[in-house]
Design a protein around this nucleic acid. Structure first.
Lengths: 202, 202
DNA sequence: GTCTATACACCGATAGAC
DNA sequence: GTCTATCGGTGTATAGAC
């Protein structure tokens, strides 16, 4: 998993013949990879396991992707791009602050995200992609919160927008994660607290 | 990583000869495993990589542990036990609520924990151990918070103890995790908010 | 675009000698 | 308690035919 340059520079630098980036087959392979990630973990991601899950022969993986790291990075970027798109839609909602909370809560796949986070520890491209996503996502969230504060005449000093964005993100994620392990002590109280706060903004 | 029974039932059910659980060598192997986990990820955990990191021959791993799953579970349990011990010490502190926050903040190894969380997705024993830790830890934290509320005459309805325990835990963890990726937007605001709250309890 | 074939490396787990 | 030796299995990445 030690990728020297995947992510920042150019992909595709192998002598062997390779296919296009956006074919139906390459997306099928990405879907298969994410299913393997989800069900068996990044340690189980191999050209063979992904191919089997995608319904193609294992050598095809190397026709569409430079190597396993490239495959994983591409899958992760696709996932993060979709997250940004959802946030942009949330901003259009009539209760946008609540929307970014519910959006995170509903779209997070706790286990899949842990796989990607663990992966990021050893995959420079994925780590850089996480920073890119965090930066963009937080900026969008802060914009939404500042607008809500202005409209309701709320003092931004009480809970600064950046702090609220942080809280919304991580409370939603933590709820999903704990539920994922079958543990939900205190969740009702947290949801009540969150709801009380959102109502004060609406 | 599909462990059928590791964790709940008895370990040790192989015909081959095996060594004691608490020798210096077995702890050296556990330390090595955690270093590999930290530096290269659970996908890189093999009897050979762990042995090399521990300075022993790879076959010794199978003398001290049933298999790789058993090794990983033992390492994780050891780590969680240490966490519980620290929480019990925090309870003795003169500012115990602040102590559980600082404790989490200082003892979390964001990347190592992601490895374990990802591992839990495919390792029943580790998942069960997480639930055990969460249950015990939350109970201790709630006890600490309830005591602080009583001593200061604070209404527990404002922020219920279970909710506060949840927030303290996950805010501390999220700070460490974001810092781990080199992202710290809003952290100053969060720390200020947290500090303001803790001062109101002291 | 997709398949067959293939090189070469690495891992898990065990048996048995010292 | 530690070592040598070894088995069968699986993975990566490529070359080249169809």
């Amino acid at each position: 998993m030690d990728s020297e340059n995947s992510g920042q520079g150019r992909r595709r630098a192998v002598s062997r013949r390779m296919g296009p980036q956006n074919s139906a087959t390459s997306h099928a392979i990405l879907d298969g990879a994410e299913r393997v990630l989800q069900s068996r973990g990044y340690g189980a991601i191999t050209s063979r396991s992904v191919a089997e899950e995608s319904g193609v022969k294992h050598q095809l993986v190397y026709y569409y992707f430079k190597d396993i790291d490239d495959l994983l990075l591409t899958a992760f970027k696709r996932r993060m791009d979709r997250g940004i798109e959802r946030l942009q839609r949330d901003a259009q909602s009539d209760r946008p602050v609540r929307a970014i909370f519910e959006d995170f809560y509903n779209s997070i796949d706790a286990w899949l995200d842990f796989e990607y986070m663990a992966l990021a520890n050893h995959h420079d491209g994925v780590r850089q992609e996480i920073v890119r996503f965090q930066t963009e996502a937080r900026a969008i969230q802060i914009g939404i919160i500042e607008r809500a504060y202005r409209e309701k005449g709320i003092d931004p000093e009480t809970i600064p927008p950046a702090a609220l964005a942080f809280l919304i993100t991580h409370v939603a994620m933590a709820l999903v994660r704990e539920e994922g392990t079958g543990f939900s002590a205190g969740h009702d109280e947290i949801r009540e607290l969150v709801d009380r706060f959102f109502r004060s903004l609406e």
